[in-house]
């Protein structure tokens, strides 16, 4: 059950998207999100969808994973689509039967909102699928480094994020191990009242806490042994530079962006 978590999981590969500089990838992901909100009609939205699908295709990440990342937001999408469809009463009425009123602007709003949420999640998962968490936090640190001037502890924040991300799989594995061990001792997590179920979790939480604290202490000690004292004067083993792939990616995104803005002048399925 714990192995179903995919959001924020990295799938190694050698595609152009994998090879891109993670800073550029983050910037382009934001550009993509901005693009989605710039699109004012269905044509622009279609361009956004094409951009997303093409990018996914280039990354050679299976489309199955794309749908897997969408699973958790399905209820949210359905909920917002429902409200847009039935409670938006602006524009031309298409259906007007008893208390149900559906208007053309309601339908367009629904399409836009659902598509935006879905594409947003797909774009964000493409970023995390193709970038290792370490690269990601590194990129965030470097992108935010100008904030150091106004005394924002950027390095410390990035280090905290790196450690947290690094230990998610470890903790999941550990939790699974403890669950298995307690199950082997006849622990029952499924049946019983709510109180019993809550009590059944204690044999998992206690060992998990104990080992997490031990691990934190060991990690702190190991870092100190290597003379870690924060980000000051620290250099990197691998400094990624902006290269050809990144320029190509940026141009690719820019072309789609221009297309979206150009298509905004048409009046097909315009968002009101």
């Amino acid at each position: 059950m714990l192995s179903d978590i995919t959001l924020g999981q990295y799938f190694p590969g050698k595609s152009p998207i994998h090879r891109m500089d993670s800073r550029v990838k983050i910037v382009l992901t934001f550009a993509f999100i901005f693009m989605l909100f710039c699109a004012k009609n269905l044509l622009g939205l279609a361009v956004g969808i094409v951009f997303c699908l093409v990018s996914f295709g280039i990354s050679r990440i299976s489309f199955k994973l794309m749908f897997k990342s969408l699973k958790p937001i399905i209820p949210f999408v359905i909920f917002s689509a429902f409200f847009n469809l039935f409670f938006n009463h602006e524009g031309k009425k298409l259906v007007d039967w008893k208390f149900i009123t559906i208007t053309d602007s309601g339908i367009i709003n629904m399409i836009f909102l659902s598509a935006r949420i879905i594409l947003l999640v797909i774009g964000a998962s493409l970023l995390t699928y193709t970038t290792s968490p370490i690269d990601l936090t590194d990129a965030i640190e470097r992108l935010l480094s100008p904030l150091k001037k106004i005394k924002v502890p950027v390095h410390e924040l990035a280090m905290m994020m790196t450690i947290a991300l690094r230990f998610i799989p470890t903790l999941i594995e550990e939790t699974q191990k403890i669950i298995n061990a307690q199950k082997s001792r006849g622990a029952d997590f499924e049946s019983g009242s709510l109180v019993q179920k809550a009590k059944a979790i204690v044999p998992i939480l206690v060992p998990l806490f104990v080992s997490s604290f031990n691990r934190a202490e060991e990690l702190a000690l190991a870092m100190e042994c290597r003379c870690y004292n924060g980000g000051e004067g620290r250099t990197r083993l691998k400094t990624s530079k902006v290269g050809k792939v990144d320029v190509a990616g940026a141009i690719f995104t820019l072309l789609f962006f221009v297309a979206v803005i150009y298509l905004n002048q048409y009046n097909i399925g315009k968002l009101k």
Binding site: K177, I178, A181, Q182, K183, S184, R185, G186, P203, P207
Partner: peptide, 20 residues
């Protein structure tokens, strides 16, 4: 399955992490 687990006692590797 719970009855099976009482019949087959499984001690995992490094079982000390199961103490609570």
């Amino acid at each position: 399955m719970r009855q099976i687990r009482f019949k087959v006692g499984l001690v995992f590797q490094y079982p000390e992490y199961q103490l609570f």
